[in-house]
Amino acid sequence: MNEAAVATHVEQTATGYDNRKLFMWIFLASECMFFGSLIATYLLYRGRSIDPPYPGNGFTYNIPYTSVSSFVLLMSSLTMVLALSAIQRGDQRALRVWLLATAFLGCTFIGGQAFEFTSFVQKGVTLKQNLFGTTFFVLTGFHGAHVTVGVLMLLSLFALSMRGKLPQSSSLNVELVGLYWHFVDVVWIVIFTLIYLVKV
């Protein structure tokens, strides 16, 4: 499908948007409610744990470490948007470089999270230990799962590009994965602030 065909297709929808893009935004809106519920649950149960350790009683977050993870995820949003810009220009080589860079940064974030989870377990914080452990691991674990799915989608795009099946006219596919990836990033911005930084 060439660009003119894509443009015509977009004009033919009642909203003026490609239906796939509109659906992705509706999906992201539903994801807001999903993560909103998990964050609300964490905040509501904060300070209600009975058995230590929990923040304020034998446990502290490693803020410098998590800040670096946050920085890595933020920079992955930059590489993702550069990948989109590359395919819109028809620069396949740059597209592959930026897609791989984004996947690499995503893997770095997941590796950092795995290390953090391991160190928490060594400090006695487990999924079953107390309310803090349960709400923290469920929230950040689901976020990590979303990042993992994003990395798989990025690698799929990379494979498609290598096989010559991701032409310039398919830039919407990269845009949709990009929207998902940026959403995962903005969710982490909220989690980092409300869970790690704000002490009530």
Binding site: A29, S30, C32, M33, G178, H182
Partner: peptide, 27 residues
């Protein structure tokens, strides 16, 4: 800027804001 909401028209911003508003209300 990265998700292009500033450049993509208001409908998408309304859809996304609705999700955030519902999440905030549930909270």
């Amino acid at each position: 800027f990265f998700m292009h909401l500033k450049f993509d028209g208001r409908l998408l911003a309304i859809v996304f804001s609705t999700g955030m508003a519902l999440a905030g209300s549930a909270f």
